[in-house]
Design a protein around this nucleic acid. Structure first.
Length: 418
RNA sequence: GUGGGUAUAGUUCAGCUUGGUUAGAAUGCCAGAUUGUGGCUCUGGAGGUCGUGGGUUCGAGUCCCACUACCCACCCCA
């Protein structure tokens, strides 16, 4: 093959697109029930947006962005996540002047990260995500988590676990960072190289390290939950109360910190465990400082992102029941030029009446047309040969029972609908 | 960025260890087996520059090297 798709990208073929459409339809339906409206923002943004929004010390910004200069010399970046673009859209369109909160979702949003591809991770993937702006109370956080769980369970993903944490706010986190550094200082030599470099600029990330030795060191570390200010404590308590009240089981995991700089207070991950894949399917949290960071009013935000490829992967691995696409109602088998002309028009007529009708564009024999109709899974074949045409009828064959019946052409549509 | 594996028909793979005439299977695709009828069965057909480039050899799908791509794990994340 001369040209193949770029590394880390994946085609959706006509044989599998129905699975995507199924999940998209469920997501739309659930979002509607929760009062969210769809937004669509550009695939490209000014690089500056992500430097300020996502944070210039994050892995995403430092080594995973698709950044290039356009012909006008502007630095442009393919969006690496959904929130920054949504926030920019919100500010640029002055939506903060409307009654708050603003609840939005995006679906099939392409996001790009220059990463090494592997199971459940691509360079271009598509996210479903939601954003709630202007809602300071923790009930909004809980609503986001509840919505994510509603979709995941509805899609059929098994063995889900919700992990929540609070990473505090600008008032209480510096104190925690000091406490953490104080604790780690004595065991600094035991940390991995990456964590040593994190020590000064972002010690919180050390808690997230997957290295066994770092985990061992962190096991006895002070937790941020002990250092939260009164406001953050109350917020976290409200979140837990809300989750409990809607039946969302969760575990408090002081080790999740998330990879984006904009988070404050609530962070959460929803993890799925199944044969073949175990890991995060949804990650999100609160970002009360983001809007101000982007030069807008100090409105709070909360939301999550969910990778659709990953969602589909775990859904299939969990044996989710994804309904097959609608079958062909009738295949019109015509032979001879006059019959073909009539058959072509008949197909169009039937489609206009809501029937899924197919017609031969290859010029196959009757036998081959039947075979093809069978492959399509057609319920009926309408036979239109010279005999039938002369009578103004079609012979309708039920492919399951084999029964045949002569039907006048004008009555076909209603016969098919029964 | 680090480590491991793989690359042969549309697809899933065998053949490679012990180099040797026209490279196989299954499945899919096309056609035929009563002249206007599917599924099951049978028969036939099309389809491969054996990832790319170099090397060793009388001879390379098979051995060696490089490159590329893909898969898996680490890291990070969705």
């Amino acid at each position: 093959m001369a040209i193949q798709a770029p590394k880390g990208t994946k085609d959706v073929t006509p044989k599998e697109s129905y699975k995507w459409q199924y999940i998209e339809a469920l997501a739309r339906e659930i979002c509607e029930h929760y009062g969210f409206r769809e937004v669509r923002t550009p695939v490209i943004e000014h690089t500056e947006l992500f430097l300020r929004g996502v944070g210039d010390t994050t892995d995403i910004v430092q080594k995973e962005m698709y950044t290039f200069d356009d012909r006008g010399g502007r630095s442009i970046t393919l969006k690496p996540e959904g929130t920054a673009g949504a926030a920019r859209m919100f500010l640029e369109n002055g939506l903060f002047n409307d009654a708050q909160p603003t609840k939005m979702y995006y679906l099939n949003c392409p996001v790009f990260r220059y990463d090494k591809p592997q199971a459940g991770r691509l360079r271009e993937h598509h996210q479903f995500g939601i954003e709630v702006y202007g809602a300071p109370r923790a009930s909004a956080d809980a609503e986001c988590i509840r919505l994510a769980m509603a979709l995941l369970t509805r899609v059929g993903v098994q063995n889900l676990a919700v992990h929540i944490n609070s990473i505090g706010c600008p008032q209480c986190r510096p104190a925690y960072n000091d406490a953490l550094r104080e604790y780690l200082r004595g065991r600094y030599g035991e940390l991995c190289e990456v964590c040593k470099s994190r020590f000064e600029k972002n010690p919180l990330r050390i808690l997230d390290c997957k290295e066994e030795r770092c985990k061992a060191v962190c096991a006895g570390a002070p937790t941020i939950l002990d250092c939260l200010c009164e406001e953050c404590k109350a917020h976290f308590a409200e979140l837990q109360g809300c989750l409990t009240s809607v039946g969302v089981a969760y575990t408090v995991d002081p080790f999740i910190v998330r990879g984006l700089d904009y988070y404050t207070k609530t962070v959460f991950e929803i993890v799925a465990r199944c044969e073949g894949y175990a890991g995060t399917v949804c990650g999100g949290g609160r970002y009360d400082g983001l809007m101000a960071e982007l030069g807008g009013p100090g409105l709070p935000g909360v939301g999550f992102g969910m990778g659709m490829e990953r969602l589909l992967l775990v859904a299939e691995l969990s044996g989710a029941d994804i309904p097959a696409p609608r079958r062909t109602d009738v295949y019109i088998a015509a032979l001879g030029e006059a019959a073909r002309a009539a058959g072509f028009a008949l197909a169009d007529e039937l489609r206009g009446q809501g029937v899924i009708a197919e017609f031969d564009h290859v010029g196959r024999s009757f036998k081959a047309q039947f075979k093809y109709a069978d492959k399509l899974g057609a319920r009926y074949v309408a036979i239109l040969g010279e005999d039938e045409l002369a009578k103004g009828c079609a012979k309708l064959k039920d492919m399951a029972t084999g029964e045949e019946q002569m039907i006048p052409l004008p009555a076909l549509a209603s016969a098919l609908k029964n």
